[in-house]
């Protein structure tokens, strides 16, 4: 049963990657990467039980920390670069927010 859950989480991670590739705005990509990160934490936790190596849980916690800080850092970076280059990548967000 744990294996089914692990596969479902893996599929979700693939979907998140698809969203990260599709975009269209920077924020969509950050959202997808954040989702990918939190799902990695869950996957590590489930894998720890499948493989019987519960010391993996420490890695899960460390990954959760890194993911949170990483997302905030990327957001800060996007904001700063928008201030300096108002016509850069971030500004595209408002013009091409919807594609199907």
């Amino acid at each position: 049963m744990l294996l089914v859950a692990a596969i479902a989480i893996l599929v979700t991670m693939a979907l998140a990657l698809a969203r990260a590739l599709l975009g269209p705005s920077v924020y969509d990509r950050v959202l997808a990467v954040n989702m990918f990160g939190t799902k990695t934490v869950l996957l590590i936790a489930v894998m720890a039980f499948i493989m019987g190596r519960t010391d993996f849980l420490d890695l899960a916690l460390a990954y959760a920390l890194i993911n949170f800080i990483g997302v905030l850092a990327v957001l800060w970076f996007v904001q700063e670069s928008r201030k300096r280059h108002p016509s850069g990548t971030g500004a595209q967000a408002s013009t091409e927010s919807n594609t199907e």
């Binding site: 859950a5 479902a8 599929v11 979700t12 599709l22 919807n98």
Partner: peptide
């Protein structure tokens, strides 16, 4: 059962993030 139902919610969220129409709904 708890783990499986949780992973179903996770999967549904992945589908939602892919098929919702705009950024905020995603």
């Amino acid at each position: 059962l708890l783990v499986i139902s949780g992973s179903l919610f996770v999967l549904a969220g992945g589908i939602g993030a892919l098929r919702m129409p705009d950024f905020y709904t995603r």
